[in-house]
Design a protein around this nucleic acid. Sequence first.
DNA 1: GGAATCATGTAAGTAGTTACATGATTGA
DNA 2: TCAATCATGTAACTACTTACATGATTCC
Lengths: 184, 184
Amino acid sequence: MKKYNHTTYAILGILTTECRTGYSIKRLIDQSLNHFWKISYGQIYPTLKRMVEEGLATVKTLTEGGKPDRHEYSLTSKGEAALKEWLEQPIEQIPHERNEVLLKLFFGRHQTKENTLLQLETYKQKLTETYETYQAIEKMIKSNHQHHEDVTYWLLTLDYGKRVATAAMEWCDTTRDYFKKEEE
Amino acid sequence: MKKYNHTTYAILGILTTECRTGYSIKRLIDQSLNHFWKISYGQIYPTLKRMVEEGLATVKTLTEGGKPDRHEYSLTSKGEAALKEWLEQPIEQIPHERNEVLLKLFFGRHQTKENTLLQLETYKQKLTETYETYQAIEKMIKSNHQHHEDVTYWLLTLDYGKRVATAAMEWCDTTRDYFKKEEE
DNA sequence: GGAATCATGTAAGTAGTTACATGATTGA
DNA sequence: TCAATCATGTAACTACTTACATGATTCC
């Protein structure tokens, strides 16, 4: 079967929920997948168009006076099959993260200790905020039972985010202590 | 001061080591930064060219019969200043990882349990390999004392990679157990 | 009255990958 | 003799972001 890009698969998956428009797809991503998958309108709208051309989805245009036309997308059986096929495919590569903090630390010899410590503080601060966002999302998902069939899976992805963030925060602490000890 | 892209800063940093050519920059990245920063020749060569145009580096061309000309790059004081300035800048955003395994799990309702378990197994397998690679890099860095001034920093970035990989592996185990229990 | 939400999309630009092209030397 | 290493680079392509443009409704 033909291969599509990641954005297409992400949208195929989202169209299995009750999200039907580009706008609501964006909202779902921002609210629930944002910790491991971001996407912009500049990708969503052209991708939706292409998906219809490819026969993965159909579109119904609802015209209302004044407002822009509302485009409601639905999966075709071809779309469903493509999603299933992708889900069954084991991943080829683990994601390679690009980490700016580590890049700066890598060249740490050219910085002052104070600056390195500041970088670590900032990073930990951001990680803490991220962690709190995860907890907020978790709360929201749990209280909003509309999609109860998906909830378990969604929470598992959040658990991943929390664990990784925790490990990163612990690294920040250990590394900070290391530099503090060196200062003495 | 003018802002440059991440690739430029990465290369500025590497030019503080004894790497002087596009080829050896690529090698250093593959051997030591690969766990959080990848880069291809298609980026390195055009970036080096631009860096010379911008006055961040100078180039000396060494012609030898037969072989392609060897281009040796050196930082200018402007280049050093740009690197220092970037190092002092605290990061604005933590890296947003795109994780295909999580994306598939997010739509796990449309998969069989067996398939989800298989995905987790594959992911854990890859993480294990990654972890082992980190240990191999660590060994290599420790035994190769040429760059001893940088070694501490390089090892810290590896520690990060190991911790995060460990957390991810633990998540794999917990999640697997969760699905195994459900099966009963 | 003004911000937020709903709703669409495009154009220009940046970033990055992959495949291709070339060819000498060194070591097993 | 064959693979690996050294060494350069470009062209085509894919992916993604940001800024822009439009405008009604709803809530504070």
